[in-house]
């Protein structure tokens, strides 16, 4: 494995160097807010980042396998097409905005607007698993994919206000108690038994393998699945009109 010290380069030098490096696995130490790492990458390179990564980590990317030993800032996996990002810490706002594929695992909390406007089509199914809690507007405008919020390592409420507002596809899984105030009214809420977790069992197992904890502990609390009954929540808002 190749090891780089991020402090030796400016932001763009670092990006250009990473882009050119042929090595399949690169470790970068002393990451301190560098933006756009792996942005737009179309490869399966493995990056191990130590420190706090800057905004838009893996934005528009397709394929990179990224592990962050530290925290992420805004826009982690923004419009990501494929790949995997594992953050051993917390992330800021709009993680997974418009995500179209791949997986994002976050050990601790996520900020506002987690996974908004995620999409899915056939084999492309984006997944976000948050070990802690998520801020307001999680899953807003969600069109597809899966968001799982576990609340394992957090003292905050599991979700903020307006979770799933304007959602028209996909599913949000909430573990344990969650505040129902300001939850979008059109959401279908199903409390799941042990057999209801089949759809997300593999994702939970991956979470356990990355961050420790046990499956027994995770499944000790009931899960609620949020989804939409109507695909067209706004169908009756408008009136066509021949003037």
């Amino acid at each position: 494995m190749t090891i780089i010290n991020a402090a030796d380069y400016d932001n763009y030098e670092l990006l250009q160097m990473l882009e050119k490096m042929p090595q399949p696995e690169i470790q970068i130490s002393h990451v301190n807010g560098q933006r756009y790492i792996a942005c737009g990458w179309k490869n399966n390179k493995r990056l191990i980042l130590q420190g706090t990564v800057g905004n838009n980590l893996g934005a528009f990317a397709e394929g990179p396998q990224i592990v962050v030993f530290g925290n992420g800032q805004e826009g982690v996996a923004n419009t990501m097409n494929d790949g995997q990002i594992i953050v051993h810490g917390r992330v800021g706002d709009i993680a997974g905005y418009g995500m179209r594929g791949g997986k994002l695992f976050i050990k601790e909390n996520a900020g506002y607007r987690l996974g908004i406007h995620m999409k899915a089509y056939q084999e492309k199914k984006p997944v976000i698993v948050v070990g802690g809690s998520a801020g307001a507007f999680a899953g807003e405008y969600m069109a597809g994919g899966t968001i799982i919020i576990l609340g394992m390592n957090s003292n905050q409420a599991l979700i903020g206000s307006y979770c799933g507002t304007g959602m028209y596809g996909g599913a949000i899984y909430l573990r344990g108690e969650y505040p129902s105030r300001n939850l979008a009214p059109n959401l279908k809420k199903e409390v799941l038994g042990a057999d209801g977790l089949a759809e997300i069992k593999d994702y939970l197992a991956e979470y356990v393998s990355f961050f420790g904890d046990t499956m027994e502990n995770i499944t000790s609390a009931p899960f609620t699945r949020l989804s939409v009954e109507k695909k067209r929540p706004f169908a009756h808002l408008y009136t066509g009109f021949v003037s």
Partner: peptide, 19 residues
């Protein structure tokens, strides 16, 4: 297929880019 949203659902572009 082109938009990656369910067929026959409304395609919604939020007013702002949320980033």
């Amino acid at each position: 297929l082109a938009r990656m949203i369910p067929a026959w659902s409304d395609a919604i572009s939020p007013a702002p880019h949320h980033d």
